[in-house]
C-alpha cells in the first residue's frame, strides 16, 4: 500500500551542525519523486531522515515533522523500528549480507525479524521478490550461493529484492545506479517504473536524464556555501523543472552552469 508523506519545517542536524534546513514537501503516493542537487547539499541526509535512519549516527537529530498518511513518524511514541519496516531503503553501495546466501538475503527481512513462515511461503516470497527486482532468471539456479558472489548490478538488484520482500509502503533509494553500467541502470529504472504502481518511491540521483526519465516530481536541493545548511530550493513536477523551472538556481544547475 503506497502512502503519502508530508514533511514540514524539517531541520536536520549532525550534532551542532545544521545540515539541512526548513524542508517543506509533500511526496505523492504511487509516484516517483527524484531529488537532485550538488554534492554535500543534504540529499542523503534528508532521505535518511524520512525513515529515521538518520538518528543511528551518533549525535544526529531532527527537528520538525514527517507525517505518513496521518501518522507522525517522529512522535515520541513512534518506534523507529516500525517506521523502518514501513519505509524500505536501498543504499548507494550494494550491501548484501556476506554471511548469507542469495535466498537468505532476500528472506533476511523475515528471518532477522524472526517471523515464522512456512518453507513454501518463504520460497514463494523469495521468488516473487526476485522476479520483482528482475533478478530471478539470473540467479534461480544458484540461490544457495553467497550474495556477495554476484556482480555489482546484480547485488544492487538483490538489495532491491531484499527491500521489497518486507512489503514496505515507501521505498527510498540513494543513488541506486551510481555504481552500475547503463544496462543495469536501465533494468533498475524499468523496475522502478513497475514498482511505483505499488510503492511510493523517492530516489536521489546525480543523473539528470535519469531524474527526467523516471520521476513525476523533482526536488532540487542546494546550499549557499560551505558550512551553510542545504535547502530544498524548488519542488515541482518533473516536466516543469526540466523545461521551465521557477528558480534561476535550478535552471543553472540543470543546464550545467552551476558554480
Amino acid at each position: 500500500m503506497a502512502k503519502r508523506i508530508d514533511v514540514s519545517d524539517l531541520d536536520i542536524y549532525y550534532g551542532k551542525f545544521l545540515a539541512v534546513q526548513g524542508v517543506n514537501v509533500s511526496i505523492e503516493p504511487r509516484s516517483i519523486t527524484a531529488l537532485i542537487g550538488p554534492s554535500g547539499c543534504g540529499k542523503s541526509t534528508f532521505l535518511r531522515s524520512i525513515n529515521r535512519m538518520h538518528e543511528v549516527i551518533p549525535g544526529a537529530r531532527v527537528e520538525g515533522k514527517v507525517v505518513m498518511d496521518g501518522q507522525d513518524l517522529y512522535a515520541p511514541d513512534t518506534d523507529p523500528v516500525t517506521v523502518r519496516r514501513q519505509i524500505g531503503m536501498v543504499f548507494q553501495r550494494p550491501n548484501p549480507f556476506p554471511t548469507m546466501s542469495i535466498y537468505d538475503n532476500v528472506a533476511a527481512g523475515m528471518r532477522l525479524n524472526a517471523k515464522k513462515m512456512s518453507k513454501a511461503a518463504t520460497d514463494e516470497l523469495v521468488e516473487r521478490s526476485l522476479r520483482g527486482a528482475n533478478l530471478w532468471e539470473e540467479v534461480k539456479d544458484r540461490l544457495d550461493r553467497p550474495g556477495s558472489g554476484l556482480s555489482g548490478g546484480q547485488q544492487q538488484r538483490l538489495c532491491i529484492a531484499r527491500a521489497i520482500a518486507v512489503e514496505p509502503d515507501v521505498l527510498l533509494m540513494d543513488e541506486p545506479c551510481s555504481a552500475l553500467d547503463p544496462i543495469s541502470t536501465l533494468a533498475i529504472e524499468d523496475l522502478m517504473t513497475e514498482l511505483k504502481e505499488r510503492f511510493t518511491i523517492v530516489i536521489v540521483t546525480h543523473n539528470m536524464q535519469q531524474a527526467a526519465r523516471v520521476s513525476q516530481q523533482t526536488g532540487f536541493f542546494n546550499l549557499n556555501g560551505v558550512g551553510q545548511p542545504g535547502r530544498l530550493i524548488e519542488f515541482n513536477p518533473t516536466e516543469k523543472i526540466f523545461s521551465n523551472p521557477d528558480e534561476k538556481a535550478t535552471e543553472d544547475y540543470i543546464s550545467g552552469r552551476f558554480g
Binding site: 535512519m53 523502518r84 519496516r85 550491501n95 549480507f97 532477522l112 525479524n113 531484499r162
Partner: peptide
C-alpha cells in the same frame, strides 16, 4: 553498511 542494511529492514 551491514548494520544499516539491517536497520533499514526494520530489524
Amino acid at each position: 553498511e551491514l548494520r544499516e542494511a539491517a536497520y533499514a529492514l526494520g530489524v
